[in-house]
Amino acid sequence: PDSPLARWTKSLHSLLGDQDGAYLFRTFLEREKCVDTLDFWFACNGFRQMDLKDTKTLRVAKAIYKRYIENNSIVSKQLKPATKTYIRDSIKKQQIDSIMFDQAQTEIQTVMEENAYQMFLTSDIYLEYV
């Protein structure tokens, strides 16, 4: 059967689905000063599971927007302008939807898959763990 390590190299998704893998990748990203991209990715997953009837959900959507999108952070820089506008307008109109961050998450995931994930698989931190 697949060892956790074999799964980590299979895809970013399987790395992030593994507790140790996600932890190690997070440590790597902290060192590379781009841990916000991973936190944003997890925040999008967490948000999707929230109850839309709960008043907390709008507050979390606003918090995600404020922390990662409206400023000039690393996440914001990697998002398409149209994606940011869509999220800003949804929050402004208080039209909260479970999938409102999906497009942004996909864009961040693509950049992570092409860059940070590949770098992680050849990093000291990964090779030492292996």
Partner: peptide, 20 residues
Amino acid sequence: LNSEDDLLQKCIGSAMPKHR
């Protein structure tokens, strides 16, 4: 009352993998 940052951290934590 939860601060916005606490809510955000809880949201992130809820999505992190718990066990292998």
